[in-house]
Write a protein that binds this DNA or RNA. Structure first.
Length: 502
RNA sequence: GCCCCCAUCGUCUAGAGGCCUAGGACGCCACCCUUUCAAGGUGGAGAUCACCGGUUCGAAUCCGGUUGGGGGUACCA
């Protein structure tokens, strides 16, 4: 069923893709997909001083990586400009804003303002000193034609200010119901076009949302106080305002608005740490929304199926990394083998480049490891921490670490030596977990040891770690030759340490 | 300062007047499984539903106030 729902995400390329932007994009996307509407992306790059092409790419790549695809958007980062309302980049729409501003000026709904930054700052300081609300004093609001001409003659570049009419502006927010704000609290007439001719956010966002027929504006709660300005502008421009829905904010652990200072906010960082897109999307969807059931692991398509703005929470949600890791683990356990392997490879290769391991295994080798590593991975990057020892040439294990708690050095030396002999009895064909275990159990039986002690000694001697996947599976993954070589090396080191001891 | 918003376990949340002596999940603790680590299973601790009034036969749910928290107050977005 076709729908006239049109929503958008309008990122500003002044920084890398932020978790908050991704969440807002996701909710818009889910709403569009749920209603059969259209989701568009518009680049708000009018802050030329801070916008960069690199940030644009990071944002678009990040959104694509998450699977949040748009139906209409700019031609950027290898993409084709797509959609009937092109261009979707504000710096390419300057004539549209200029035309709209001219219309407002002509109708005296806006006026040129010649106040200098110094005057404005002085006004604000005076108001603060008098403990009054800060607002534009209206110095240029009622200038005569002659007065304007005089200022023009002085060469002052005028900004364009929008006349804020008295009264109350209200709207029925889809998340927080009725909201009403007295325009007296808006800070006076506000600038819509800077002195240098660049249009400002409050203006461009309205001109574009109107031009692009955006039906629902779904954005963060931090925009609630801006909404009256936007509604006033829609009215002045002769458009019916869209429906608004203000989402709760994503918060730092301390409850303040999520910031780079207190949290990891760049989506790219989570990608680099081995979070999978399904988990990030799943987790983000549940920040401020819930299907009302007790299920919590959903793929993107199912989220879209169930998503309803009516079920969005009003209060902010603190970002909980531990919970994200749990969701990530859930998703890693659900991925198809081939898929998981291909996602794991880059992390293994990165570890090799970083010198943490000496060789990169083939995909087949990694696939064979899946049964023993899968449920041990909170993140993709954890693969190296879990079984990286398999790909290291020389472990150089500390002899002291090889000695189990209940054992001493001589016992450990004996244990490793006899275990080595027992294992060496297997050829490459019988080098299977089921085959390796019985002889060692028998050895333990004969010696009167505890299996756990012997196994731990072998574990540390062959992996350098006290925590690994199941020992025999690990030895199989290591292979006969390397297992025996590591055992030999461990025995030598342990013996040498014993010799040196007093 | 001024304006606006919000308020259920530490955290994410279920809850739309009686089903709530408040449910689930993360985290935490214990036990089971077990060669370590995970995963999984079972059980547990953890919320006088911020507080005070009111409406009602009955309130976490409705109303008012208080307190607390947050957001906004730019020729940034």
């Amino acid at each position: 069923m076709p729908s006239d729902v049109r929503v958008r995400i309008a990122p500003s390329p002044t920084g890398p893709l932020h978790i908050g932007t991704a969440r807002t994009a996701l909710f818009n996307y889910l709403f569009a997909r749920h209603t059969g509407g259209t989701f568009l992306l518009r680049l708000e790059d009018t802050d030329t001083a801070r916008s960069t092409a690199a940030f644009e790419k990071d944002i678009l790549d990040g959104l694509h990586w998450l699977g949040i695809s748009w139906d209409e958007g700019p031609g950027v980062a290898g993409l084709e400009e797509a959609g009937p309302y092109a261009p979707y980049r504000q710096m390419q729409r300057l004539d549209t804003y200029a035309e709209a501003a001219a219309r407002l000026l002509a109708a005296d709904l806006a006026y040129p303002c010649y106040c200098s930054p110094e005057e404005l700052v002085a006004d604000r300081k005076a108001q603060e000193a008098a403990r009054l609300p800060t607002r534009y004093v209206g110095r240029c609001a009622t200038l005569t034609v002659a007065e304007r001409a005089a200022r023009e003659a002085e060469g002052r570049p005028p900004a364009t200010r929008f006349r804020v009419r008295p009264g109350v502006v209200g709207w029925n927010d889809l998340v927080r119901d009725r909201v009403e704000i007295d325009t007296a609290n808006l800070g006076g007439d506000f600038v819509i076009v800077r002195g240098d001719g660049d249009p400002l956010y409050h203006f461009t966002v309205v001109v574009d949302d109107a031009a692009m027929a955006v039906s629902h504006v779904i954005r963060g709660e931090d925009h609630v106080s801006n909404t009256p300005k936007h509604i006033l502008l829609f009215e002045a421009l002769g458009h019916t305002p869209p429906v608004f829905a203000h989402l709760p904010l994503i918060l730092n652990p301390d409850g303040s608005k999520m910031s780079k200072r207190k949290s990891q906010t760049a989506v790219a960082d989570y990608v680099a740490q081995g979070f999978v897109r399904e988990a990030l999307v799943n987790y983000l969807a549940f920040m401020g929304w819930s299907p009302g059931t007790e299920e919590e692991i959903f793929p993107l398509a199912e989220l879209a199926e169930r998503f309803e703005l009516e079920k969005v929470q009003k209060g902010g949600a603190r970002f909980d990394r531990e919970r994200l890791e749990w969701v990530n683990g859930q998703w890693i356990r659900r991925l198809e083998d081939e898929d998981l392997v291909s996602r794991l490879m880059p992390f293994i290769e990165a570890a090799r480049i970083a010198g943490e391991i000496d060789r990169t295994p083939g995909e087949d080798e990694v696939r064979a490891l899946l049964p023993i590593v899968r449920e041990r991975l909170p993140t993709l990057a954890a693969i190296v921490d879990t079984v990286g020892f398999l790909w290291v040439d020389d472990l150089a294990v500390d002899p002291a670490a090889m000695i189990p708690k209940r054992w001493d050095a001589p016992t450990t030396l004996t244990g490793l030596t006899e275990a080595r002999a027992a294992l060496a009895a297997h050829d490459a064909v019988t080098w299977e977990a089921d085959e390796l275990e019985p002889p060692l159990r028998a050895l333990v039986e004969v010696r009167g040891w505890k299996a756990g002690d012997l196994f731990m000694a072998i574990r540390v001697a062959t992996t350098g770690r006290t925590a690994t996947p199941p020992l025999f599976d690990t030895l199989v993954a290591l292979g006969r030759e390397r297992t025996l070589a590591r055992l030999d090396a461990a025995i030598v080191r342990l013996a040498a340490a014993g010799t040196l001891a007093p």
